[in-house]
Design a protein around this nucleic acid. Structure first.
Length: 184
DNA sequence: TTCTTGATCGGT
DNA sequence: CCGATCAAGAAT
């Protein structure tokens, strides 16, 4: 399970969002890996994207989104749920919305949904801004040989973003049954 | 300093 | 449909 180089995550957010499908997200806790295959992502394309947090400008929270590609951007929504993103660069990032359990996740624990997968992997806000090319948190090429069948649709929960809410920036592997419920 | 608002989820 | 629950940003 070898981490992808940081350069894998740089470039166009839509492209990175698609290419992350099929990759493994890995969290190492006390020497044990918890991992899942990424099956659903959303692209937040930059400061001009009104659904993107960086559209509020550079703040303490969004600073990491303007940093180098391949770093983690984690934030708390609704005071309850953590979301993980891969920074693409220039204020853009890719939200990971669902994974298929691969290793170290107990049977029956749900991983379909941004808040559920972060809980299943045991992520915390302290992982914010860490590079995703080494433990404790990294992304590796998935072992699956079969490529994902990619379907695009509008992003979820961003109705406030006007016309940006309609853009087909959500991507999922339609072969997977672990895609988040909203909009399957 | 206080006020408002969520890139959600689980239970009615 | 509704309420939980809290960090960050905006307003004061």
């Amino acid at each position: 399970m070898k981490p992808l180089p940081l350069s894998f995550h740089s470039g166009d957010a839509v492209k990175v969002a698609k290419s992350l499908l099929g990759m493994d997200l890995v969290h190492v806790v006390r020497g044990r890996a918890r991992a899942g295959r990424i099956v659903e992502t959303e692209a937040y394309v930059g400061p001009h994207d009104l659904a993107c947090h960086s559209s509020k400008g550079r703040t303490q929270r969004t600073e990491v989104m303007f940093g180098p590609a391949g770093h983690a951007y984690l934030f708390l929504v609704y005071g309850l749920h953590l979301c993980v993103n891969v920074v693409v660069g220039d204020g853009a990032a890719v939200l990971i919305r669902a994974i298929e359990p691969r290793e170290g996740i107990p049977e029956g624990v749900r991983t379909d949904g941004p808040g559920r997968l972060t809980r299943a992997l045991g992520l915390s806000l302290s992982l914010n801004a860490l590079p995703l090319n080494q433990p404790p948190l990294f992304i590796a090429r998935g072992e699956s040989v079969t490529p994902p069948h990619i379907t695009a649709s509008p992003r979820i929960g961003v109705d406030y973003a006007g016309e940006w809410a309609q853009k087909p920036f959500r991507f999922h592997d339609r072969r997977s049954s672990f895609v988040s419920h909203a909009g399957r």
